[in-house]
Amino acid sequence: MQIWGFIVRRILYLIPVLIGVTLITFALSHLVPGDPARLIVGQRASEETLERVREELGLNKPVPVQYISYMKDLARGNLGTSIRSQRPVIQDLRERFPASFELTSLALLFCVIVAVPLGVVCAVKRNKLVDHLIRVFALFGVSMPVFWWGLILLLIFYVILGWLPGPGRIAMDIAAPAGPTGMYLLDSLIAGDWQAFGSALSHIILPAFCLSYVYLAIMTRMVRSSMLEVLNQEYIRTARANGLSEWTIVVRHGLRNALVPTVTILGLSFGELIGGAILTEAIFAWPGLGSYLVESIGFLDFPSIMGFTILICVIYVMVNLLVDIAYGLLDPQIRWN
């Protein structure tokens, strides 16, 4: 099957990309002003202590040697020790990651479920009232900052109406579901704990919507414009001339062709969202990667920041791989080139 060759080739392309990423993060850690050893020991420590910490961290060795030992550590999954928590960075990230992943996945799922139909409706009903309304809705999403939405939504649904709970991942008086994934929705489902599931779901709705709105807006417009382009193609005219129903034409012949650019946006959004949900996570006190980054920056916790960066880069690259594979599945022409 040519699709497998395509996937293997794409995976091989990842290797140089990931090496490039480590080079950049490593270079950045050596370019930032300030001495990590001094940060660890504090301003009042003696020169000897400083020297000792430098040696411990390997900072007295030549830069290429440092890079190699850094790579060795990376290969073993060792991202260093967080200055703030005094725990391995990888452990911190492992704890925070499921919360972000859960939030992002749900936000994007919501995004796709809403944006694709809206975009298609816009394209089919071009310049009609419904098209204008949806475009205004989308314009709103692109224009309003996420923290504004977050606060307004909290004010309305939590403070005024009281329909949804406030910040956090789950109600205080409900035990967090213990499970293999660390994602509360999944774990509570696995455990069959409906109370926890309900609480987790009601907690995630607002931040997920908040996070998705901008991307939902962008994607709606994207689907609309690529759909409009596709609907003008000659094969659509052929399909019409063959007497196919409008639904078949739009969904079967149009949408699949229009999805290629949409999948690109989806992939990019996922990469951005997983690490970039900083504002949303801060507003909703969501204990994910974004809020971890904010806390780490406050502490000048370099190992954590670098670990975060590498993790996000790896995710980003992996998502791009998935996007490439999706291209291949959607458009047979891409498989062949």
């Binding site: 193609q233 000659e234 094969y235 005219r237 052929t238 399909a239 019409r240 001339a241 063959n242 007497g243 196919l244 129903s245 012949h253 699949r256 062709n257 959607l330 458009d331 047979p332 022409q333």
Partner: peptide
């Protein structure tokens, strides 16, 4: 009614065969 006529009683062939068929099927 027109849809039922198209392709069944009246068919049409276009100028550009290259772009007249859907590229993904």
């Amino acid at each position: 009614e027109l849809r039922n006529i198209r392709g069944k009683y009246i068919s049409m062939i276009f100028q550009e065969p290259m772009s007249s068929l859907n590229p993904v099927y």
